[in-house]
């Protein structure tokens, strides 16, 4: 460009000119993406049709807020949370044991762990729940020798059915997650610990497990969220969790579909809370591995609020 050549022979006003003469921005006719218009119109059309359909349907929307904090519903929510936490706890503890068994040099324990995982991952959890529920048909009593003896029906409550059905199934998945986590830790770490005179157990507890947590925590968070939703299958064993509670209400109120919507909203609230918890847990276990952690949403909001008052580019 001729302007540049002209400027370059006046060295003292060169830098000033650079800031004054901004490059001319390109003015061109943009390509029209007609396909985008079409797909947007189609998508909006489908959405409108759906909303219209539900508006035409005989839905008593008021029933959702009316029953949202109904005592039966709240009991269901509480039971859903309780069974999720306890089944998950059983799954994690048993899963760690299975993972260690699977990685052990003892061929018997390793084979047993393999078989357990194969069996519980290979059958649907719904079938497992029904099996626990119907075991009463084949066992009349439970007899643990001198420790415990009772009739099967009073021993195997709906709660225990749900806990065993969900927890034992979860253990198989947790075992695989823990195994992957333990194996992800560099072998040099174990060697360094052994060379310092640390025993196998201490090496596992102090060196390997803390590092494996970074790999274990994210998928475990997903498992908790999955468990919360899968716990609705406990309806099959008469356990009064959230879904069953809404069904009980709909029998008396007659608002069947509305109560299902209500259940869906409660599930979404609970899973959203869990997602936030998982985010902070992952941050905690990332320490030492990444040089600076990304800001949390709250930190990001605070930074954004602070920079609102300033003019753009004020950072420099």
């Amino acid at each position: 460009m001729t302007v540049d050549i002209h400027k370059s022979d006046g060295p003292q006003d060169g830098p000033r000119d650079v800031t004054r003469v901004a490059p001319e921005s390109i003015k061109a006719i943009p390509v029209r993406h007609y396909g985008r218009y079409v797909s947007a119109v189609v998508a909006i059309g489908v959405l409108v049709a759906l909303v219209y359909a539900f508006a035409q349907g005989d839905v008593n929307w008021d029933a959702v807020p009316d029953y949202f904090f109904d005592s039966q519903i709240l009991t269901g929510v509480k039971n859903t949370v309780v069974i999720t936490v306890l089944a998950m706890l059983l799954g994690v503890v048993l899963g760690i044991v299975l993972a260690v068994m699977r990685l052990s040099k003892n061929p018997v324990t390793s084979a047993i762990a393999w078989f357990y995982i194969w069996f519980f991952r290979g059958t649907p959890v719904y079938v497992q729940l029904l099996v626990w529920f119907n075991l009463g048909i084949v066992f009349e009593y439970i007899n643990l020798g001198p420790i415990y003896k009772d009739e099967w029906s009073s021993f195997m409550t709906p709660f225990l059915c749900a806990l065993l059905g969900l927890g034992l199934n979860e253990a198989a998945y947790m075992a695989e997650i823990c195994r992957a986590g333990l194996q992800s830790v560099d072998e040099g770490q174990t060697e360094a610990a052994h060379a310092l005179g640390m025993s196998h157990g201490r090496t596992l507890r102090r060196i390997v497990v803390p590092q494996a947590m970074r790999v274990i925590v994210p998928p475990t968070g997903n498992e908790v969220i999955n468990m919360l939703k899968t716990s609705s299958l406990a309806v099959a064993v008469q356990y009064t969790e959230l879904l069953r509670a809404t069904q009980n209400v709909s029998q008396t109120s007659g608002a069947t579909v509305e109560m299902l919507f209500l259940a869906a909203v409660w599930y979404m609230i609970l899973t959203s809370v869990l997602s936030i918890g998982q985010y902070y847990l992952e941050r905690y276990y990332a320490r030492g591995s990444s040089r600076s952690l990304p800001p949390t949403p709250f930190q990001r909001i605070r930074v954004n609020l602070l920079s609102l008052g300033r003019p753009k580019g004020g950072v420099a």
Partner: peptide
């Protein structure tokens, strides 16, 4: 092993 110190090529410090 407590009486024998070892230094590795790849350091193997505990990162956590």
């Amino acid at each position: 092993r407590r009486d024998i110190g070892m230094v590795f090529q790849r350091f193997n410090l505990f990162p956590h």
